[in-house]
């Protein structure tokens, strides 16, 4: 899709997904595929960087809800970083900040992972 893209890279031995554009019911399956691929390869320390994500609907949040248990079940976590206010507001409305690590930037997420492992 033109209006959504995911890049995958590694940083300090962690998996980083960079999200670009608009995440909605049409594009959410792409995120789902990326997460599934990581989980299938037992890559479970995942940072999702939202700095280039302009928009999110509940279908996008649903993906994080559906896979977080699988990731935590194999000893990892999904940490979310660099959200703009508009995107953070949606996570906040639905109560995500109490159940997910939502951090200012990637370095904070890396540090948190290093302290946990």
């Amino acid at each position: 899709m033109k209006n959504f893209k995911i890049d995958h890279r590694t940083k300090s031995g962690l998996e980083v997904l960079d999200l670009y554009g608009e995440l909605d019911a049409h594009t959410a399956s792409q995120l789902e595929d990326s997460l599934k691929r990581l989980i299938n390869n037992q890559k479970c320390n995942i940072i999702v960087n939202f700095s280039e994500l302009d928009y999110i609907a509940s279908a996008g949040l649903g993906v994080f809800m559906a896979y977080i248990e699988d990731v935590r079940g194999i000893g990892g976590d999904i940490k979310l970083t660099n959200m703009n206010d508009k995107v953070y507001n949606v996570f906040d409305l639905l109560g995500f900040p109490t159940l997910y690590d939502i951090l200012e930037n990637e370095s904070e997420a890396v540090e948190k992972f290093l302290n946990e492992n």
Binding site: S58, A59, L61, G62, V63, F64, M65, A66, Y67, I68, E69, D70, V90, L93, L94, G95, F96, T98, L99
Partner: peptide
């Protein structure tokens, strides 16, 4: 209001649309 903890345990997304519409 969706119960996030429960939905996560059941690995279920969804069910948030109407709640958001009413909030927004």
């Amino acid at each position: 209001k969706p119960n996030l903890q429960k939905q996560i345990e059941r690995k279920k997304g969804g069910g948030m649309g109407v709640y958001l519409m009413r909030k927004l």
